[in-house]
Design a protein around this nucleic acid. Structure first.
Length: 424
DNA sequence: TCTGGGGTCCTAGGACCC
DNA sequence: TCTGGGGTCCTAGGACCC
C-alpha cells in the first residue's frame, strides 16, 4: 500500500460549467471572457483548435471566432464558485486528506497498489461526472510535482481516458515522455526560469530531473531545488489541508471606460473600499494596512503611470466608513491631474483575526462605526450587494465605469429567479 | 473604441538592536 | 588610525500560479 498524491482538475472549467446548463454548447467552440469582457480566460477544446489563445484580447479574436460559430460568455463567478464547491465536496470523499489548490483543482491523499490506484482515479472521474456534470482529469504520483505532470499526460493522451497513474506506467515510457516535454510545462517553472535554464542546456523535464539539486539551489532558489527533488520522487512540498490564513484582500478592477476626474476616482475608491471591507467582515478579519492603486493604459503610446500609496491604519479595522474615507484621501494624494485612469484598486493587508481584537474593541472608539459595518453586511447578505451603501458607494445607478458583462449566463444555481425549470 | 484579477512564496537589502 | 558580528523585523521586488 503506497501513499500517493492525486491531482484532480476540471477540464476547461468555466466552459464546462456553462455547458452543464446549456447543452447546445457541446461540440462548439466556446470562450469565457475576463471581467469587463477584456480577455479570453477559458476555451473549449474546439476554441483551442481554432487557435484562440488564453489571454487573447477579445476584440482581436471576436470577428474570426464568430465567423467560425464561436459562442462567447462573460465570466459568471457566482456560477463557477458554486460549481467549484460541489466538485470539491465530491472529491473530498475519495482522499485521506484534501488540499483545494484553486477554483478547479484539488490535491488528494490516496493509497493502494498500482491496480487499485488506477481504479480509484477512474471512480473519481465518474463520480464528478455523475454528481456535478463536469469532466475531470486525474494524475496520480508520489509527489505533487509528478502528480501535476501525470495530470498533464492524462490530458494530452485521449486513449488514457482522463486518467494517468504513474505506478502503472512503464518507467522507460515515462522517461521518453519527460525527455520530450519542455521544462516550462512543469509546475513551478515559468518563462523566466525557462530562459535561464535553457542557457545551461536544460530544456526538457528529463534534463531538469537529472540536474544537481544543490547546484540548482545555488543558481536559482530553494523553490526550484524542490522541483528537482520532487521529479526524483522525493516529496518535499508540504500540503496544507487547512487553508493557510489569508495574507491580503484585494479589490482591483479595470473600468469599462476611463476615469479622468478626481470626483470619478473618489467614487471608485469609495465603492472598492466598501467591497474590501465587506470581505473583511465575511472572513472575520481586521486589516492594519491599506493600499490604493491606480493605473493608466499600459498599451497606449506615451508614459504609463501606476501611482500607489500604502498607509498604516490607526488601529486594526474592518470599518467600511473609515476605510472608504482613508482610501479616498490617499487617492486624492497620488492621482495626477488630467491623467486618464483605466484601473483602480484597494488592497487590505496586515490581516489579523477579529477574535483576537474582541477584548480591545471595548476600549476602541471605533466601536460604534464597526457596528455600522455589521448592519451593512447583514443588509447586503439579505437583500443583495447593491441594496445599500455609504456615500458615493451607495450608488442607485451603475456608474459608467462599472463592469461590462455583455454575454453573461444566468446564475443558475445561486439565484432563485435563475434556477432552470425542467418539464417532463 | 476594446488588452483580467487575485493570490502565494522567496530573497535581498536596509533599519535597528545589543 | 582603528571601524564587529549576529540577530530580527520589515519592505520591495521577482517569480510563479490559476
Amino acid at each position: 500500500m503506497a501513499e500517493r498524491i492525486a491531482l484532480v482538475d476540471v477540464n476547461n472549467f468555466y466552459v464546462s460549467c456553462e455547458r452543464v446548463f446549456d447543452p447546445s454548447l457541446d461540440g462548439r467552440p466556446v470562450v469565457v471572457l475576463s471581467n469587463n469582457d477584456g480577455c479570453v480566460v477559458a476555451r473549449s477544446q474546439e476554441a483551442k483548435d481554432l487557435g484562440i489563445t488564453t489571454g487573447a484580447p477579445f476584440f482581436q479574436v471576436k470577428q474570426f471566432g464568430q465567423s467560425h460559430g464561436m459562442v462567447v460568455r462573460s465570466s459568471n463567478y457566482e456560477l463557477y464558485g458554486d460549481m467549484s464547491a460541489r466538485v470539491m465536496e465530491v472529491l473530498s470523499r475519495f482522499g485521506t486528506w484534501q488540499e483545494v489548490y484553486s477554483i478547479d483543482e484539488s490535491f488528494l491523499g490516496v493509497q493502494g497498489n498500482p491496480e487499485q490506484l488506477g481504479e480509484l482515479a477512474s471512480r473519481i472521474r465518474k463520480a464528478v461526472a455523475l454528481n456535478v456534470g463536469v469532466p475531470v482529469c486525474v494524475g496520480v504520483a508520489p509527489t505533487k510535482t509528478l502528480a501535476k505532470f501525470a495530470n498533464h499526460v492524462a490530458k494530452r493522451n485521449a486513449h488514457l481516458d482522463g486518467v494517468c497513474s504513474m505506478d502503472s506506467m512503464d518507467p522507460q515510457l515515462v522517461e521518453r515522455i519527460q525527455s520530450r516535454v519542455p521544462v516550462t510545462d512543469l509546475w513551478g517553472v515559468g518563462a523566466r526560469t525557462g530562459t535561464k535554464l535553457a542557457g545551461m542546456g536544460v530544456s526538457t523535464i528529463a534534463d531538469l530531473k537529472a540536474a544537481d539539486a544543490t547546484e540548482i539551489r545555488k543558481r536559482f532558489s530553494v523553490v526550484l531545488q524542490r522541483t528537482v527533488l520532487e521529479l526524483n520522487s522525493i516529496a518535499c512540498i508540504p500540503h496544507n489541508e487547512e487553508r493557510a490564513d489569508k495574507q491580503q484582500i484585494m479589490y482591483s478592477r479595470s473600468f469599462s471606460s476611463p476615469v479622468t476626474t478626481i470626483e470619478g476616482m473618489v467614487e471608485v475608491m469609495s465603492v472598492y473600499a466598501q467591497r474590501g471591507a465587506a470581505r473583511l467582515l465575511s472572513d472575520g478579519l481586521w486589516a492594519t494596512l491599506l493600499t490604493v492603486t491606480a493605473g493608466t493604459n499600459r498599451f497606449s503610446s506615451g508614459e504609463a503611470s501606476f501611482p500607489s500609496l500604502t498607509i498604516k491604519l490607526p488601529s486594526p479595522t474592518q470599518d467600511p466608513i473609515l476605510l472608504a474615507r482613508l482610501a479616498v484621501a490617499a487617492m486624492r494624494e497620488i492621482m495626477h491631474q488630467g491623467a486618464s485612469y483605466v484601473r483602480g484598486g484597494v488592497v487590505l493587508s496586515g490581516l489579523q483575526p477579529e477574535a483576537g481584537q474582541a477584548m480591545l474593541g471595548v476600549f476602541d472608539e471605533g466601536g460604534a462605526e464597526t457596528h455600522v459595518g455589521d448592519v451593512l453586511g447583514a443588509v447586503k447578505a439579505r437583500f443583495g450587494n447593491k441594496s445599500i451603501g455609504l456615500g458615493s458607494g451607495g450608488l442607485a445607478v451603475e456608474p459608467d465605469w462599472s463592469m461590462k458583462r455583455e454575454f453573461s449566463s444566468p446564475k443558475f444555481t445561486t439565484e432563485w429567479a435563475d434556477i432552470p425549470i425542467v418539464r417532463a
